[in-house]
Design a protein around this nucleic acid. Structure first.
Length: 502
RNA sequence: CGGGAUGUAGCUUAGUCCGGUUAAAGUGCGCGUCUGGGGGGCGCGAGAGCGGAGGUUCGAAUCCUCUCAUCCCGACCA
């Protein structure tokens, strides 16, 4: 490999708020200016734009592959759920009742007073329909018909769908009234198998977050307060954003026999007895996009890990006339083909409608991991300028080495982003033993705070009221260590992870 | 649903307190031209009647009333 020079471009994107100035403004502007999504005229709902959707599609493709590899198949259940279904599992209703959209009518008509269309009062539904906030109820109502015997188990189904939760305050990707997700719903003959399934999917999520999103996550179990409505146990992956706030990035629930009992889903065992099945559900959503953005991006815009970047390499020609452009194109096309042969997504941007400088900024803001530029000088020297987005560094690489160089960069950038994120997390994870330190760390530094907790909801709630911090999880890998609760002073056998969260 | 604020060109905003020529600018858009190794320069041009309805007035973006919408802060949340 032949490197002639290294230089750094550390500019500020024009008219873009920095993280330090206002993190939340930075995020909102980034999402819009990087062309990922925008708010729609429908309150709380977003339009995911092609570039943002392309990233989501990459996530979907990989997750879907991982689900299939673990034996799951896809299916699709209705968007609408009869109201009565939702009330069959008491905890579940309570958890979602406050944020459900309800369909009450099925027809419009012209307003006799000339005000456009109105809801036809004669078209009232006998039973109102709920727009799914999650699909446990409709799915378990269906599973009841599908499951009779242990021979029908396990049932391992996933669906990719949209769901609606009527949120008061929304933010692009992080919390929208309608969002896209996948929800896995499985049925098992034993408790152990169901728990193993919930844990397995947690690890699938963890692997995806770390290896594909380059986003380190803590795996753990939720406390009763934070648990999914209707679950016996909720496992989660928790990520730490750059502003020191935690983001719940995925959850996997062991539902016990709650839904089986609510929907009367029984199966005949090998021994001829009749038992309720054991259930799990698990999901990740477009919220992952928010996590991806807030884990890596900087004051120059989006930064994407190569494995999820819709464009991994952008190539920009610099030319004064047609002859130069075609000379450059003649060099670039074979290079592009070679990179593509390695499975790298390359965009050769030879549009004459935009200037090179404009394109540099465009791809930088959109987080394209590697940018190649070739101009008259490179043409003469048989070289290419290679710029990487994660470090904002540029090097001149000889044309003969550039394919190998770029191939290697893909791996290097992916690793660097992960390492950077894990470094940030470890410097923002603090162990505290007193409530004073606890509050001080939250206010001054943020991040994950490891503290002893007495295991009661009462203490958890008080801490939440006083500090806005919640228990993100009881870590799976945390070692047992006896101590005393930071709040109550009562004995505790393990530290839990506190943080202010999204 | 409580507390605060804002609606003027595609977008961001000035003008509003203290009514008065043809509503102003940046950006974006179109054309021309010089350019082209980090959002380029110059020139020309298109684009809004000021969230909506009503009122006061010779005259309303500006004052009054009502209304709608959005944003921010609180309770909820993947």
């Amino acid at each position: 490999m032949c490197t002639f020079a290294a230089q750094f471009w550390v500019g500020m994107a024009k008219g873009f708020t920095s993280r330090k100035e206002d993190y939340s403004k930075w995020y909102n502007e980034l999402v819009v200016k990087a062309d990922l999504a925008e708010t729609s005229d429908v309150r709380g709902c977003m339009v995911i734009k092609p570039y943002g959707y392309a990233i989501w599609e990459k996530m979907q493709a990989q997750l879907d592959k991982m689900f299939k590899e673990t034996g799951h198949v896809n299916a699709y259940f209705p968007l609408f759920i009869p109201k009565s279904y939702l009330s069959k599992e008491a905890n579940h209703v309570e958890g979602f009742a406050k944020e459900c959209a309800v369909v009450t009518h099925y027809r419009l008509k012209n307003d006799p007073n000339g005000g456009g269309v109105i809801v036809d009062p004669d078209a009232k539904l006998e039973e109102e329909l709920i727009v799914r906030p999650t699909s446990e109820t409709i799915i378990w109502n269906t599973y009841k018909k599908w499951i009779q015997s242990y021979r029908d188990l396990p049932l391992l189904i996933n669906q990719w769908a949209n769901v609606v939760r009527w949120e008061m305050r929304t933010r692009l990707f992080l919390r929208t009234s309608e969002f896209l997700w996948q929800e896995g719903h499985t049925a098992h003959s034993t408790k152990e198998e169901a728990i193993a399934e919930a844990e397995q999917m947690l690890h699938v999520y963890g692997k995806f977050a770390e290896e594909w999103m380059a986003m380190p996550v803590l795996k753990g179990v939720k406390t009763e307060n934070e648990r999914f409505a209707g679950a016996l146990d909720t496992y989660c992956i928790e990520a730490l954003m750059q502003d020191g706030k935690a983001l719940q990035a995925g959850t996997s629930h062991f539902l016990g026999q709650n839904f089986a009992k609510a929907f009367d889903v029984k199966f005949a065992t090998k021994e001829g007895t009749e038992e309720f099945v054991w259930a799990t559900s698990w999901g990740v959503s477009t919220r992952l996009m928010g996590g991806l953005i807030m884990t890596h991006s900087d004051d120059n815009g989006l930064v994407l890990p190569p494995k999820l970047a819709p464009i991994q390499v952008a190539i920009i020609p610099i030319y004064k006339n047609e002859e130069q452009l075609s000379a450059i194109t003649n060099k670039i096309l074979p290079l592009k083909a070679e990179l593509e042969k390695l499975g790298i997504c390359v965009k050769y941007d030879d549009r004459d409608t935009q200037k090179p400088g404009w394109k540099f900024n465009e791809y930088e803001f959109k987080g394209v991991p590697v940018r190649l530029a070739m101009g008259p000088r490179d043409l003469e020297n048989e070289s290419v300028e290679v710029a990487r987005r994660d470090t904002l560094s540029k090097e001149i690489v000889s044309l003969s080495n550039v394919v190998a160089y770029v191939e290697n960069l893909m791996e290097e950038i992916q690793t660097n982003l992960y390492n950077r994120a894990i470094e940030h997390r470890s410097t923002h994870t603090t162990t505290v033993d007193t409530y004073e330190d606890f509050k001080k760390v939250l206010d001054q530094k943020g991040g994950f705070v490891l503290a002893h907790w007495d295991g009661t909801s009462e203490t958890e709630n008080r801490i939440k009221d006083e500090t806005k911090a919640t228990i993100r999880c009881i870590p799976l890998e945390g070692k047992n260590e006896s101590g005393t609760c930071v709040y109550s002073g009562k004995p505790s056998s393990k530290r839990v992870v506190f943080a202010r969260a999204y």
